[in-house]
């Protein structure tokens, strides 16, 4: 909370963004405390990694300081905030207390998920089975949103072939320590991402987490060795095609299950044994999600790093 206040007060945008990264990491720790390991994974990779880098890129392309907030505006904003806050706190008085097992949120569909998912889906991580199977439509929608946002950013910033902005050719390659550490870390990060991707059925993990971890490996590579080297490994056209293919894979699994006589995204019909089918379906769908998320994040980074302001 203290970090959030500091972020709000700082006029130096660079420091504010760095503090925001710390704030994200702290909230990831908070998620672990509240038993949401999958969420903590994602928040740590996204908030402390990718979001911070994207914000820094945007700062590099604009200005690094903020004009101080005028006094009158400061007090007006404080007034609005205090009144709204008190109203919302009054609203919380009717809420169930923290950790209450009889809270309405725990009584409706959740007991079904917790008790039946082992028999119906056959994988221990309930978060994964809800994500990819029970609520497969939602997840498909979310994946499409991510893809659309990436398309939007590319549309706004364009993909300029000539690379001039802050990640110049060579990047930070002259820093020996950065170069060696990056080389040591990269295979481990990629391996870990693959583990998270395919072990998501049994432990915390899945397509979303694996996608952002995978993308952060590429972003690290791009930052240290320069954008030219990164695009030599993964050309931006390939990345964009992969992002589209991920969504397509997800949707096609749904269409396939339609043709095999089930409902859309009903994986039980994919093979003879329904639980086996669920396994295969979830694996395929999560792979699609992982592809789209990773490729979208990488192309976001490319778009920012290669943007050339018009003079």
């Amino acid at each position: 909370m203290a970090t959030a206040i500091a972020v709000a007060r700082l006029d130096q945008l660079f420091a504010a963004v760095m503090l925001f990264g710390i704030y994200s990491l702290l909230s990831a720790a908070l998620f672990v405390v509240m038993d949401a390991v999958d969420v903590a994974f994602t928040e740590a990779a996204v908030g402390a990694g990718i979001a911070t880098i994207l914000m820094l890129s945007a700062l590099a392309l604009t200005s690094r300081t903020q004009r101080p907030v005028p006094r009158r505006r400061h007090w007006m904003a404080t007034g609005v905030v205090v009144v709204t806050g008190l109203g919302v706190i009054y609203g919380t008085l009717d809420m169930p207390s923290y950790g209450d097992p009889n809270a309405p949120a725990h009584l409706h569909v959740v007991p079904h998920y917790l008790q039946q998912s082992m028999a119906e889906i056959g994988i221990p991580n309930v978060v994964t089975s809800v994500l990819a199977s029970y609520r497969g439509y939602d997840t498909l929608g979310e994946t499409v949103v991510i893809f659309t946002a990436a398309v939007g950013v590319i549309g706004r910033l364009g993909v300029v072939p000539g690379i001039t902005a802050y990640v110049k050719s060579g990047g930070m390659q002259h820093h020996l320590i950065l170069r060696i550490t990056a080389k040591l870390m990269l295979p481990l990060i990629l391996l870990f991402a693959l583990y998270v991707q395919f072990h998501g059925d049994y432990g915390p993990g899945g397509g979303f987490q694996a996608g952002v971890i995978f993308a952060s490996a590429f972003i690290l590579y791009g930052l240290v060795f320069g954008l030219e080297d990164a695009t030599a490994v993964a050309p931006s056209i390939v990345v964009r095609v992969v992002a589209a293919c991920g969504v397509l894979l997800y949707a096609l699994v749904g269409v396939l299950s339609l043709f095999l006589g089930g409902n859309y995204l009903d994986y039980g019909v994919l093979v003879e044994d329904p639980t086996q089918g669920q396994h295969i379906g979830i694996l395929l769908v999560e792979f699609g999600v992982g592809m789209t998320v990773a490729a979208s994040m990488i192309s976001l980074f490319y778009a920012y790093a290669s943007y050339k302001p018009e003079e």
Partner: peptide, 17 residues
């Protein structure tokens, strides 16, 4: 929330763009 975080960063990127 898992999906919302990733969607959140994507929309943040759009806003920054």
């Amino acid at each position: 929330i898992l999906t919302a975080i990733v969607v959140g960063v994507a929309t943040t990127a759009l806003g920054l763009a």
